[in-house]
Amino acid sequence: MLFRVDPRSTVPLGDQIAAAVRGAIADGSVRAGERLPAGRELAASLGVNVHTVLRGYQRLKEEGLIELRRGRGAVVTGVASPARARLGEAADRLIAEARRLGLSDDEIVGVVRQGLAPR
């Protein structure tokens, strides 16, 4: 899979790395069970800090797309599907849109919670 990061973008580098993995899962080029490169390796490859990569991986873990296991590295989970990855992309779009409108993080969470409330 192709990782692309642009240091001049306003999007944090870790999020850009997460977006690259998400995109690869969404278009089917990375499938469940596949192992992502080790954080240290990817950091050296892209010339970014290891913690930046791990921040991106952490985000993917919270989205349920990858599992992080000591010694085994980052592995794409069984539930990670193209549709699931697109959900993360949709969330990114929501956040970007809300920020453009000048909403704070709390307000963005509030919008989502509002949408969930009726159920």
Partner: peptide, 15 residues
């Protein structure tokens, strides 16, 4: 070729 913006970094990896 790949359309890469100036300053953009990229790496490709696969097993």
């Amino acid at each position: 070729r790949l359309a890469l913006a100036a300053g953009e970094r990229a790496g490709w990896t696969r097993t």
